[in-house]
Amino acid sequence: MSENEDIIKVEGLTKIFNHSLVAVDHIDFSVKQGEIFGFLGPNGAGKTTTIGMLITILKPTEGAASVLGNDIAKQSLEVRRSIGVVPQEYTADEDLTGYENILLCADLYGIPRSISKKRALDLLKLVELTDFKDKRVQTYSGGMRRRLELACGLINRPRVLFLDEPTLGLDVQTREATWNYVKTLKKEFGMTLFLTTHYLEEADALCDRIAIIDHGKIVVIGTPTDLKDSLGGDIITVAIQKDVDITDLISRIEHVKEVKKENGSYFIKSANGEITAPLIIEALRKGGQVVTKLSLTKPTLNEVYLQYTGKSMRDAEESRENVFRQRMTMQRARR
């Protein structure tokens, strides 16, 4: 397989449960070598269902997809051999130690003990669990469990790793630490990563490209920067001492796209706020005005989400099973 070939290729992929519930609705996308690709959307948008089909535990109703050149429906065994999976849930066995858990994962991939013992120790070192390797998972904190899941997902040296809600239920610090592990995988091993999340910050901090998914459909795909830029850029808010109209003056400044006056303040849209803001101050001073207030707001993914779906992130209807699993995950994460 050449460098430029798509690691994951999805065409018209659809999943309908019980002939009525459309969970994933004709989606198309592709993931390139070495990329962190994120599926962003609220609970119930179809993220986990998509990942389920790609890792061959759900059968697609329609459409096709290939992972590393293998068709997910026809060559599912090849797909399973070549991918790593870090599920949303904490699947490690509580009664076993961290080390034993990784060895169990290795056995499931048919890796002989002569190889897996060494690999398990290397992976435990990578996720900084070496000191806890002989402790039962019962005693692990949420962050440690997440790292153990990550290690398990890497035991077969996959070229592509699937992460379903990698930081569900974790606190902010642990979440950032987990992001760093994920980034390391990309940087040091050139691994391709596909992840789902309903945390906007996570998608922003981790992903090279994001697909926003809502009601089973992909609404938009792009890099976080492109998506934010598509909103028209930064917003600069300016207020001046005197009650005179300066709209024309500001409009003439470089990079300014749009000026709106509201409640005595001017809202200025600019593609590059950092450069524009000093220019505005300069222009106003030359024009004899005194600036009393100035602020710069960068658009966030939240605004992007709002723009493309027409609503804020909200929770859609969820199946009983998923709700239970998520609750279990959250409970364990907080221990």
């Binding site: 535990i57 065994l77 399973r80 949303q88 699947t91 699993r325 279990m328």
Partner: peptide
């Protein structure tokens, strides 16, 4: 095993 997600994990391996 199904409810705790272990089943899904195992199903995603070549077992």
């Amino acid at each position: 095993d199904r409810r705790l997600g272990f089943m899904n994990k195992v199903l995603s391996t070549p077992v």
